[in-house]
Design a protein around this nucleic acid. Structure first.
Lengths: 407, 407
DNA sequence: ACGATTTGTTGTGCCAGCGAACTTATCCGC
DNA sequence: GCGGATAAGTTCGCTGGCACAACAAATCGT
């Protein structure tokens, strides 16, 4: 049913309704005001009968995907309800990241709780993929040693700053790491600690956007822009990350701001990265490239004119590029992530101004710009969530006597 | 099942499999080499058993959505197969269009065959919506009078050159018609001939792109650019038109080519429309705005330097805008429609050059640019196909004793 | 203490697809 | 020309999964 080209049999009903019940319970637990629904709540919310929900819930409990809490009498008449919550410490997803200045892994359980993480900072520009992925595998091993033994790991998703072929395809290009056509999955699973894992790759901005759908107040449709040395973006529509045909969508950093502008590392001219990338901003502000975003903000706040104009011009360029994006994909909300989060006080005004004048639909749907709420290393969180999502998409694989591969 | 938030019951299986069988038969008939599959063919192709397919096919026949042809013995041993084809003259979709220089309606049956059409050309810039839609309703009435009486009309979809809210929402803005916030559906259904129809609205480029998926050789993922006075675009991914949150996606005409370029009617500066729109091209070539695209090509072919450079510069600007689009949505194939189809010989070279240098993924997936095959009035065809698609999406509504509204 | 009320469970009936026979209709070889 | 091979379409019993409804369990109010 999910796959439109396949026949629907009875078992398909089960899969669909299992998904429905599980995602309802998980979503309720992940909301800002976490509530633990009872079987009856799930039944009314989903439209299934209480009887069917009972059967499905029993299956999910036996699969250790959800757990019952002790009944709570809720001051009303009637038998007290049994709250249903995501199981803890039974299934986890690993989210990893290789970026310019750090590598790391993070483990999340089904409720989105952080079970543990291992990080190493460093400078990975122009690094050797085999060595870096060896280090990452060591971190994965270290993290897994800390996790409870009976925990089942659903897989690992690795966030990378570049073009990644969907699912397990090779990394095509990560300009700021200096990697090109690297078989990341192969190199990672060659090491103990990661050799038994299902590994997926994805673009860093896409995954950070996924984390934002859960953490942020941006609703379920927005454009997420992640500013680092490079600039990535991702569109979320109706809660779904839009990745394009290969997963290469959102390369806003190499969108043209001025056709005859400065040359870019990609070979073209006038790319956004040359105006609003981290290095470009620092250079325009007359500061060393080792400065952080916070340093730049501090300078601008101290009355440094060069810093302030660099930020304003960067904001203008970003606004132009985002206006194009919004005109093309019809999403009115913009979330600023990466270094743009700390820089937001200086960027939002020019960005909004550009959106107001350049977005055709601006008169009907006012542009809203907000700061990312995903926190540090949002891409790692999003990567772990991407793995957990595969569990939600196919709970039947985790039910004991079903066709699934896991006992 | 299509709707992820709803429970799946037994009836949902039926709906899904009806859809599966019907779309298989329709797709087979619509292909370049039309084949009429038998029940057994459908069974093996879909994965259903022959028994189930038989039951479903009987339902579809009783709904008059498909028909049996006389059995054809195919030189092999065995009982000859009964070919199944879309029914003719039983169900039709109406596709209409209001554009700058003409209005019209077209009727297509389930096999995509043209049953009839009514067109009126004129100049509708700055026209009165009520009057134009009255004329259109008269055309609809005229067309319906010509169609066989027992034909059931599944609805009407109207293509408009501007921002249209999804489904039945009002038209927000059609700059080149001079319309703004018009209740098109209401005005159209106020007249006899259209008062009993389910009316939907959609953007002209989105619908032309839909026609292209059927007619063209562009596969199931491409960007369709429709050049007229304004410039629209649409993304097709996996056979699905990507319309964005409100259906406003693809407004490439107001994408920025040069931030400080000439002022545009939309209030911004340097929009693509000012470089590659029909009026802009003719002005740059020093020709009257009444000239057609063919006149411009003829002039350039005759050695008119102004015309040739206008086309080259327009192609450059179009290439820049398309490169941005491709970087953002990750689709490597570009289809040139509208006036860009006749202009293609002059445009493809500059467009390809810009894509080669500016698309980040160009090294892995070479840009391919091709000419639209949808023919004249592709948007009308796409509109009719959009209506027919609603039939395919919900065949159960057409089955006699099912829940559907139609007897 | 007893009814009212809400939750969760259990049993029956039904629907739709599967699988395996069975019928129908053709071709082929002798 | 006639029987076997082959393939298409139909029929019939089986099974899985959900709805529906009655029932059991647990709490509150008076």
């Amino acid at each position: 049913m999910r796959a439109p080209g396949t026949p629907a049999r009875q078992g398909t009903l089960r899969e669909h309704n299992l998904r429905l019940v599980l995602s309802h319970i998980l979503d309720a637990a992940a909301g800002v005001d976490p509530t633990a629904p009872s079987r009856a709540d799930v039944a009314t919310a989903t439209g299934l009968t209480r009887g069917s929900v009972s059967a499905l819930v029993d299956l999910l409990i036996s699969a250790r995907l959800i757990t019952e809490l002790p009944p709570v009498s809720s001051a009303r008449a009637g038998r007290p309800a049994v709250p249903l919550v995501p199981a803890r410490d039974t299934v986890a997803g690993l989210g990893a990241e290789v970026n310019v200045d750090y590598i790391g892994v993070r483990a999340l359980d089904l409720s989105g709780r952080l079970l543990g993480q291992c990080l190493t900072s460093g400078d990975f520009r122009g690094s050797d993929p085999a060595q870096v992925l060896g280090e990452l595998a060591a971190l994965v091993r270290e993290l897994r040693a800390e996790l409870p033994g009976e925990l089942r790991i659903a897989g690992l998703c690795l966030a990378l700053p570049g073009l990644v072929d969907r699912v397990t395809g090779p990394l095509r290009q990560a300009p700021n790491l200096g990697w090109r056509d690297v078989d990341v999955t192969g190199l990672l699973t060659a090491h103990p600690g990661a050799d038994d894992l299902a590994v997926r790759l994805a673009n860093e901005a896409n995954l950070a956007a996924r984390a934002e759908t859960r953490a942020g107040a941006a609703g379920d449709s927005f454009v997420y822009v992640s500013g680092e040395v490079g600039i990535g973006a991702a569109v979320v529509l109706g809660g779904e990350v839009f990745a394009g045909r290969h997963g290469w969508a959102g390369e806003i950093g190499h969108t043209v701001v001025e056709p005859e502008g400065p040359a870019c590392t990609c070979g073209a001219r006038g790319c956004l990265e040359q105006y609003a990338g981290k290095d470009a901003l620092l250079r325009a502000a007359g500061r060393p490239l080792t400065d952080s975003a916070e340093d730049l903000v501090a300078a601008a706040a101290d009355g440094d004119v060069a810093a302030a104009t660099a930020l304003r011009r960067g904001g203008d360029a970003l606004g132009v590029a985002l206006a194009n994006f919004v005109n093309l994909v019809d999403v009115e909300r913009v979330v600023l992530g990466g270094i743009y989060a700390p820089l937001a006080p200086w960027l939002t005004a020019p960005v909004i101004a550009q959106l107001r004048t350049r977005v055709l639909a601006a008169a009907w749907e006012d542009a809203r710009v907000q700061v990312a709420a995903g926190g540090a290393h949002a891409a790692m969180t999003g990567a772990a969530l991407a793995v957990l999502r595969t569990v939600v998409e196919d709970p039947a694989a985790w039910v004991p006597d079903a066709v699934g591969p896991v006992s």
